[in-house]
Design a binder for these strands. Structure first.
Lengths: 217, 217
DNA sequence: CCGTTAAAATAACAGTGTAAATTTACGCTG
DNA sequence: CAGCGTAAATTTACACTGTTATTTTAACGG
């Protein structure tokens, strides 16, 4: 134990603790993991973590922020692929789904409804905003390319919430008896994009009689 | 304290405790409510609830089952309204949204992702199944009436998950900066129904040039 | 080598879920 | 009515939790 803690040492300890905490959270659920258990996994005393984190809530917030960042990085990587707007958009959608299926515990933590006021953790706010932001770019591109019509911000929230809804229903165990989640997702996207295409102005293709019948309010 | 507990007395005690527990859960979150706190609200000793419930988890499961039943009753009432299939379907959708906004804590409890194995509580399974079931009837009716095309079971899951996604994002506090949740919901339904209508076979109305373009898949 | 001082470890507190032991009080029988 | 059996309620107790206060440890400067 050095006399004074190098800033690097602090960062290292925090990182290692967060990694351990995330693993334990995934294994036994957040409520089932105690500070003492985390400390034990770190090989330190029960209260040493309090030198690096204010309390358990801050640990949880940091784990969630890390998950959001990992998620955002994954999505951004998918969007960075080269290809047509449609291909890139499909890649983003696939990356979203794959992340949720590959790291269900991380996804659960990220979007848990029981978290009261995340706003106290700037890093969590930043990571969450980054994750949200990187889901609108591909929609904006689709609109710019004239493949769908509508307000990109609104459309991206529509696509996002539809996808999110299927993911969380599955992660909550509520899609055990109905259609396969993948089928629901595919059909949702098919219908949404068909619907959004219907809003396009008349175009080159011959049989474009689809006038704006969207007057259902 | 009677010598033996009438079955009615047991049911009464359970009901009163569940009501108190639900109120406390809503006020302070599930994790913030202790058995002792519930017992205090009941005016009994700390361990008396254990005569009526196996443990805290069973209390939570019962509260969740009650919420599902209340939800299902609300939806069924909306569907029981007289009117056209479209009107009845719209009423169901509105009732769904209104319930989630009126009882966000109940909704949170119902669809919380952190619940591991609900299957141990038959009443909860039954109530959950009932709630899910009453969301397909109005879709089935729409399909029967020829207003939309597709597999009713699949379509109902599409509509459900889209609605659910918006609700849980709002309840998780993730829709503070974007479009209003109501707008996302309206646009989602507009696009989905437009998309689903596109799958209809050619019909009476004059400008029905929409030949079966639904040849995808 | 010794004192200073930051870091770690220990001890302690209030509160948790819950099981075991104990007390209470009702209904029945002698 | 006395008193017993017994179900219901309470008290006690235990292992655990998050967290704070106190004490111990150990690296550095003189």
């Amino acid at each position: 134990m050095p006399k004074v803690l190098d800033e690097e040492d602090v960062a290292d300890f925090r990182e290692r603790l967060l990694a351990a905490a995330e693993r334990l959270f995934a294994e036994q659920g957040v409520a089932g993991v105690s500070m003492r258990r985390i400390a034990q996994a770190m090989g330190c005393s029960a209260t040493t973590p309090y030198r690096y984190f204010a309390d358990k809530e801050e640990i949880l917030a940091s784990v969630r922020a890390a998950a959001f960042d990992r998620f955002a990085t994954t999505i951004e990587a998918a969007f960075a692929r080269r290809g047509s707007p449609v291909e890139r958009s499909a890649a983003v959608g696939r990356a979203y789904w794959d992340f949720a299926m590959r790291e269900p515990d991380a996804y659960r933590l990220m979007f848990d409804m029981a978290q009261p006021d995340d706003d106290r953790y700037p890093d969590l706010v930043r990571a969450g905003a980054r994750a949200r932001g990187c889901m609108t770019a591909h929609i904006r591109e689709l609109v710019s390319a004239g493949r769908i019509a509508g307000d990109p911000d609104l459309l991206s929230h529509v696509i996002w919430s539809a996808t999110h809804g299927i993911v969380v229903l599955k992660l909550a165990g509520r899609l055990k008896h109905g259609p396969a989640p993948e089928d629901i997702l595919r059909e949702s996207m098919r219908l949404l994009f068909n619907g959004a295409r219907a809003g396009l102005p008349p175009r080159a293709p011959a049989q474009a009689s689809a006038e704006a019948t969207g007057s259902q309010t």
